[in-house]
Structures are given as structure tokens and as C-alpha cells.
Simulated scan of single mutants.
Amino acid sequence: MQSGLLLLAAAAATLGLAGCSGGASAPAEKKTEFSIGWSIYAGWMPWPYAQQAGIVKKWEDKYHLKIKIVQVNDYVESINQYTAGKLDGVTLANMDALTIPAAGGKDTTAVILGDYSNGNDGVLLKGATNLSAIKGRSVNLVELSVSHYLLARALEKGGMTMTDVKTVNTADADIVGAFASPDVTAAVAWNPQLSVMRAQPGVTQVFSSADIPGEILDLLVVDSATLKANPDLGKALAGIWYDTVQLMMKQDASGKAARAAMAKLAGAAPETFDSQLKTTFLYTDPKAAVAAAQSPALVTTMTRVRDFSFAKGLFKGATSADAVGMAFPGGKTLGDAQHVTLRFDDSYMKLAADGKL
């Protein structure tokens, strides 16, 4: 899956924790025009398709809004634009929501739990079929990304630690070529690169995000103050999402056409896009998404993510992993309750589940 690059550390360092505020950010004005950023990844293709297919317009008209779905070619740049206030919302992974906008003091609310990686991220070895063979190897990956997190979890489950391997920072654009070298015998990557690398002779996938279901989450987040001032935006976004994903997962001609259109928007062949969807657990049912948001497992996951992020220095200036506060449905908080900058809000998904949008 798409995830943060090394640049996220620079973003967090630039913004720092000094900007964290207690509670929601400064009041935002009520407005009618909004921009939502996205980048190419199977789980986010419903957004541009919804605009193309007129689904966005349907919900714009219902709530008298204008919502521009904006493509940003570089994933980290899309998050940086959101953090800088150039976008009202953006698609991103849970770890990156925490380490870039939230750690930088931008009060951010996740309004849609879109999917989780269910095999889109994997650990690959050459000349071995068991994870234990990774010990002592150099592992190419995008450091400080969810690939790094996945490796840490794989090692933990295999009774090892990060000290048992050496990581080699490799950009996502370069990792396929690097892995083709005989000298590189271990790597962690996300799709579509993962599938290309896995197809090389003598390569075995020894661990994947399917082994830690629900931990690598893909979200749609919105600036908290903007959402508070404009709750209809949250309703419209929920309506757009569930209309679109329920259509795309139909096994009839309409569903096939929607997926083919998304594949084209992603620059992929329909069969390639469909294979990526098989390793992406989409929350097409709002009831399931609400249950996931309310589950204690989400708190457990975000505890792991924030502990990893803090250990890797992604909370610039922080003296503990508690520096960045997070809020969950039901009033549960994690970290500094006086400095909450990442919120998981199930209310809009619940409206969709209850048919009240």
C-alpha cells in the first residue's frame, strides 16, 4: 500500500509538537466549498471514480456543497498539503495520520475507516521459505513507513527484534530495481511493487499484513475545526464513500464497469486492480466500519503504532509516546488527553449504518 516515505520525519520535525493544542484547533468558518486530496492506491480509487461517475454531485446537491476530489501524485506531498491547510481532507494510512499532521499539532479527525491492508504489504526473502531466515540479513524497505512497522511486527511474531536485521532505506520508486540485484536478499514492500518483486524466481513472501489484520488502516481524515463548523461535509463524504464502494463490489456488469474505470484511473489493467482489491479489506458495510472504530482492537493497534513511531523519533521534541493524544469513540483516549490531535469519529459512519444520511 501507499505509505509515508522518509520525508514524513522531516515534516514532523518541521512542524514539531509545539503547535499541539488542547482540544480542537482554532474555530473554522462555515463554508460550502471543500477539497479532498488522494493519491493512487487500490483502496482510495473510489474517491476519483465517485467524482467521475456523478456520485459526488449527488451528495453535493443533497447538502448544497462543492467537494473537489484532488489528485496529488506524491503520497507524502498530499499529506503535507493537507497539514499546511491547502486541503480540507486527505486519504492516508493510520500511521501517517499520527506521525505527520497529528504529531505536527494539526487537529485531525478520521471520518471514514476505508479499508485495511490484508496482504497488500509483505516481507520477501530470496532462497528461503521461512521468516526465521531473515536473521542477520540486510532488508531493503522505505524506512519510517508502514513497511518498517510491518517488519517490526513480523520480527516480534517470529521471536526476533529489529537488532536481528539491518535496514537499508530504499525509496518505493527504486525498490523493485534494487530487489532485482543478487546482493539484495530481503525486502519489505507494498503493492503494486510487492506483486512484481514476489514474482521473481526464488522469492517467497514469508509475512504479510494479512498476518496482522486491521493494523495497517487506510483512512479519510478531515481538519477537525473544519468538520466541526461544517458537519454536512462529514455526512456527504460518508454518503459518497458507501454509495461508491457498494457499487464497485457488485458482481454484475455495473460493478465490473466501476472497477474497470477505477483501474483506468489508477493506470492499471482491470485484472491487476482486481488482484489488489483481493488483498484490501474494504469496509463496504458501514456497520462493520463502526464496529471496527468502536473495537478495543483499534486502541491496541494505535498503541503499537504510536510506540513504534516514538521509538523511531517521529514525535519530534517528545519525551514520551504519550505526547500526541488520540481520542476514540466512547470517550476513550490514549496519550495526553489535553493535547488530542488525532480523533477517530464513528458518527458519520453510524449515520450511514442507520440510514440517516
Results as ranks from 00 to 15, higher is better:
Met1Thr: 14
Ala10Gln: 15
Ala12Ser: 14
Leu17Ser: 06
Gly19Lys: 03
Ser21Cys: 08
Lys30Glu: 11
Lys31Tyr: 01
Glu33Met: 13
Gly43Thr: 03
Met45Thr: 04
Gln52Tyr: 00
Ala53Val: 09
Lys57Trp: 01
Asp61Thr: 15
His64Cys: 05
Leu65His: 04
Lys66Ile: 14
Val76Asn: 13
Ala103Gln: 00
Ala103Ser: 09
Thr108Arg: 01
Ile112Asp: 07
Tyr116Leu: 01
Asn118Phe: 15
Asn120Gly: 15
Lys126His: 12
Ala128Gly: 12
Thr129Lys: 15
Ser132Arg: 05
Ala133Leu: 02
Ser138Val: 15
Asn140Gln: 08
Ser145Asn: 06
Ala152Phe: 15
Gly158Tyr: 04
Met160Tyr: 11
Met162Gly: 04
Asp164Met: 10
Ala173Met: 08
Ala173Arg: 06
Ala187Met: 08
Gln193Ser: 15
Val196Arg: 14
Ala199Met: 06
Gln200Gly: 09
Thr204Pro: 12
Gln205Leu: 13
Gln205Arg: 10
Leu219Ala: 09
Leu220Ser: 11
Leu220Ala: 09
Lys228Arg: 13
Asn230Trp: 12
Asp232Met: 11
Ala236Trp: 07
Ala236Gly: 13
Ile240Leu: 09
Ala261Met: 03
Leu265Gly: 10
Leu265Val: 10
Gly267Lys: 06
Ala268Ile: 13
Phe273Tyr: 14
Leu277Ser: 08
Lys278Phe: 02
Phe281Gly: 03
Asp285Thr: 07
Pro286Arg: 06
Ala292Pro: 06
Leu298Trp: 11
Thr303Tyr: 06
Thr303Phe: 10
Val305Ala: 04
Gly335Glu: 05
Ala353Leu: 10
